[in-house]
Design a binder for these strands. Structure first.
Lengths: 125, 125
DNA sequence: GCTACATCCTCTAGCCACTAGAGGAGCAAG
DNA sequence: CTTGCTCCTCTAGTGGCTAGAGGATGTAGC
């Protein structure tokens, strides 16, 4: 995780502004580090900033029901599954395209031909 | 495909500026439509604008070897495969997270817990 | 103490591929 | 001739950072 990213998170209010030393440098406490690692992990798992904001608010509130967190995670999972399906369709079309190319001139190129003519595709995308 | 998208393509030089009628409106010829449909299809297949620029240049040049087009398509296919693998890893982690949640208070929430502690994860991401 | 160098500071602007909106002009149907 | 739709140009915003300018501070070795 790069330094400007941390400052960016501070800027958009995802991370509280940490205290500073005499030379105006940020001093991160344990709590800041923990929060940051939460954010990083959530980003690695593909959650968006707004979702992370909600999740952080929830995680500060130990006594609420975790239904909201559950909902966010499930909806994110669904998004990921959708994206996988879309990419698989893409992969199929790209594979066909590349495999059918006979490596000759552009005028007979399957890649160029398929791009210009959607009807060669098996599915919709 | 939305109207502003077409104008955007014209702006960035992907599409030649079409002729206009007396009221300054764009008149698209058959060739423009064909080019646009090539672009749309390539975008649907996930190619980036720069890649599309190259592919268009190639498709105008019927006598060149199609090796370059082949290379672009193959490299794009590899990117797609990489993204699928990453998303599958994500899906696995998200699934575990959601399934292990016992729907109680935030303090015992598996979702929140996992996000705060990477060591619960099986793989790296 | 001095010097070199790394790291920090703030701020602005850029990335991709659009999308939204303002404010105005043209055009066809009734 | 009005109503309502589309078109025109232009600027600014989206997400999630990243790059760079220009300056301050901290640290390691001598």
């Amino acid at each position: 995780m790069k330094v400007p990213t941390i400052r960016y998170y501070e800027n958009i209010g995802l991370l509280p502004s940490p205290s500073r030393n005499d030379g105006n440098r940020r001093l991160f406490e344990q709590a800041d580090v923990k929060r940051l690692s939460f954010i990083r992990h959530a980003r690695e798992l593909g959650f968006g900033i707004e979702e992370i904001k909600e999740l952080l608010k929830l995680s500060d509130d130990l006594d609420t029901s975790c239904a909201a967190a559950d909902r966010i995670a499930k909806s994110h999972l669904e998004q990921v599954e959708l994206r996988i399906e879309k990419l698989k369709t893409l992969r199929k079309e790209l594979n066909r395209m590349v495999e059918e190319c006979s490596h000759g001139r552009v005028s007979q190129c399957r890649v160029i031909e398929v791009l210009g003519n959607h009807s060669h595709c098996s599915g919709s995308h």
